[in-house]
Design a binder for these strands. Sequence first.
DNA 1: TTAAATAATGATATGTTATAACATTTACAG
DNA 2: CTGTAAATGTTATAACATATCATTATTTAA
Lengths: 165, 165
Amino acid sequence: MKNFDTVSLSFSGGSHDHKHCVKTALNDAEALCSARGARLTDARKRVLELVWESHHPVGAYDVLSKLSQESGKTAPPTVYRALDFLLEQGLIHRIESLNAYVGCSHPSEEHSGVFLICNNCGCAAEVHDSTIDQAILKKTDSLGFKTDQRMLEVRGTCPDCHSTQ
Amino acid sequence: MKNFDTVSLSFSGGSHDHKHCVKTALNDAEALCSARGARLTDARKRVLELVWESHHPVGAYDVLSKLSQESGKTAPPTVYRALDFLLEQGLIHRIESLNAYVGCSHPSEEHSGVFLICNNCGCAAEVHDSTIDQAILKKTDSLGFKTDQRMLEVRGTCPDCHSTQ
DNA sequence: TTAAATAATGATATGTTATAACATTTACAG
DNA sequence: CTGTAAATGTTATAACATATCATTATTTAA
C-alpha cells in the first residue's frame, strides 16, 4: 500500500464544483473496472452516481427510492447487489455507524480511510494518515492479531459548522 | 482521561474464569451506579449479565429471546432501553460493524477503546493504546475537527484462531 | 405520610436495514 | 449459434430499531 497522507475532501464549505467531482469519480470508476475486467453496468453506474450526489453518506433505501422514482418499482436486492459490487471494487465506502455509503475519492489505491462525520451538517470526509495506520498496525501486531479490515469513524463537528455555529 | 494502555481481554484462549469475570463486572456496575445515583434495576442488571455471558458481541434480539424464555413475552423496547442505559453508563460498548454489544471491562474510566474482532471465532477484545489515541487526535486537530466520539473496529483473526488454524 | 413529580416499564404497532431463495435475462467464450 | 457464467428481477422474510401511549414504581418535598 502506498504511503500517503491525504484528505479527500476536507470540508470544502460546500463551495466546490461537485459536478466535476462526480464526473471524475465516474470516469475513474469506468477506467478501473475496465482495467480489471469488472463490469460497471448501467445499474451499478447509476447507483454509484446516486451515492456521489453529495458528500453526505447515503442510505441504501435512499438510493432505492430514487431508483424507484426514475425506473419504476425496484427491489432492495437490486440496490444491495450494486452496493456490494461497488464496495468490492473500492469505489464506495460503507459508514458502519450510519448504515450508509459514501463515494471513494481515490479508488485506485488500496486503503483504509478515516471518516470524519459531522453530527451537525452530516457531511463525511475521508482522510488518510500513515501515523494512525502505523499506530494501529503496531498495536495489533504486538497482540498477534492479523488484520483483515479496519473501520475508524470519528463523529463530531466539522470546521465549517464549528466556525458558522 | 487517564492515560493508559491496556488490554481488557487479550485472547485468553477461552481458558479464563469467566464466572469471576462476570461477577466482577456486575459488582463494579453496582458500585458505579450507586455512586452516580443511577438505578441499576433488576431488568438492567439482567441484561448486563446476558451481554457478559461471553466475550462475543451479543445482538439485542439474542438478549430479547433469552429474556423472553426466562420471563415470558418481552418486547424489543425493554431490551433497547436497558442497552441504552448501560451504554450511557459506559457499562457496555456497541460494536457498530456487528450491531451488537459487549461488556466493558473497566467502566469506571472514561475511554474510547479499540475493538479487535475475530472473523473466525467471533470473539471481541477491547484494547487501549495512547499512541493510537494521540495519532487520531493530532490528525483531527490539524483539520479543525472537534471530536465527540470515535469508533475503531478491527476485523481479522485472533492469535488463538491463527495458531490453532 | 401522602400527593405530586419523575423515572421506569409494559404493550402495540411500525419503521428501517438487509438477505434468502428462486426465476429470468443478458453477455460472451468457444 | 449455444452453453455457461454473470447479472438482474421478484417475492418473501429476517434482523435491527424506535415511536407512542398506558401503567406502575420510586423519589421528593409539602
